[in-house]
Amino acid sequence: MKMAELSAVSGVPVATIKFYLRENLLASGERTAPNQADYGPTHVARLRLIRSLIEVGGLAVADAREVLAAIDSDLPLQDTFAIAQRTVSEHIDPDGIDRRALDRIDAVLNGWLVSAENPGRLAAARVIESLDEVGQLDARGWIDRYAHAALLVAEADIDEIAALSDRAAQAQTVVVGTVLGDTLFAALRRAAQEHVSALRYSAVPRATTQTP
């Protein structure tokens, strides 16, 4: 298919496709003339993946390029996870976090195989530091319960990957699950908060999605 058809099939404007080509996010088509190329189903799939990472996942173009390169590589999945986590996480200097906050999150993560520079560990410690500053108490094991929920989510992530036998498909699931999984979990948390608060406080939700 020509670029115009690729645009129609994928839903991505021609100008955006050309931008993705220039940024090396999308592979070139098969050249048929000096200014023409043919594209196929793999280009459609790649465009949809790129849009998911950038438009839904919120990745910068440079970060999207890095995780796409990880998908295309032969890197071990553990390394692909590290790349995906780094691209979606803010860089945090551990020296800027109160040691007591780091000790508290390490107590929560006791027994977990987590590196000292893991972006989740550092971000969680900084959240604990902020909670302390505003006087927010953890009176009912709030943080421990979050950690338990996070383990369940991580197991769901890994189960999805384990169900695939092809390395490329596994790597793509690692990246998509890491990038879009954050957005999905935050969205489900918002819905769950409304549901539970309605049950607890008899609030009437603005809309209902109850199913039989």
Rank of each mutant, 00 (worst) to 15 (best):
A4Q: 12
E5T: 14
L6Q: 00
S7K: 03
S7T: 05
A8L: 12
A8M: 09
V9K: 13
V9H: 04
V14R: 12
A15P: 04
I17A: 00
Y20S: 00
Y20F: 02
Y20G: 00
Y20P: 01
L21V: 03
L21W: 02
L21N: 00
L26D: 00
A27K: 04
S28G: 11
S28D: 08
E30M: 11
R31A: 09
T32L: 09
T32Q: 08
A37W: 01
G40T: 10
P41C: 01
T42M: 05
T42W: 07
T42R: 11
V44T: 07
R46C: 00
L47T: 00
I50K: 00
S52C: 08
V56K: 03
V56F: 10
L59N: 02
A62W: 05
D63C: 06
V67C: 02
A69L: 06
D72M: 05
D72H: 09
S73R: 02
D74E: 11
P76Q: 05
Q78N: 09
D79H: 10
T80H: 07
A82W: 03
I83F: 02
I83R: 02
T87N: 09
T87H: 10
S89M: 07
I92W: 03
D95P: 13
G96E: 04
A101M: 05
L102E: 05
D103R: 12
D103W: 08
D103F: 07
I105W: 04
I105L: 04
G111H: 03
W112N: 04
W112D: 11
S115D: 14
A116R: 09
A116D: 14
A125F: 04
V127N: 08
D132C: 05
E133G: 08
V134E: 06
G135E: 03
G135T: 03
G135S: 06
Q136M: 10
Q136P: 05
D138S: 03
A139Q: 10
A139S: 14
W142E: 14
I143V: 14
D144N: 13
R145E: 06
R145V: 03
Y146S: 11
Y146C: 13
A147F: 05
H148P: 11
H148W: 09
H148F: 09
A149Y: 12
L151K: 15
L152T: 14
L152F: 10
A154D: 01
E155I: 14
A156G: 09
D157V: 07
I158M: 13
E160T: 14
E160G: 13
E160A: 15
I161M: 08
A162I: 11
A163Q: 11
S165C: 10
D166H: 09
D166G: 10
D166N: 13
A168L: 12
A168H: 15
A169D: 15
Q170F: 10
A171V: 06
A171M: 06
V176N: 05
V179W: 04
F185V: 15
A186Q: 15
A186K: 15
A187E: 15
L188A: 12
R189S: 05
A191D: 15
A191K: 11
H195Q: 14
V196H: 00
S197W: 01
L199R: 10
L199A: 12
R200N: 15
A203P: 00
V204T: 15
P205A: 05
T209L: 11
Q210S: 14
T211L: 13
T211C: 10
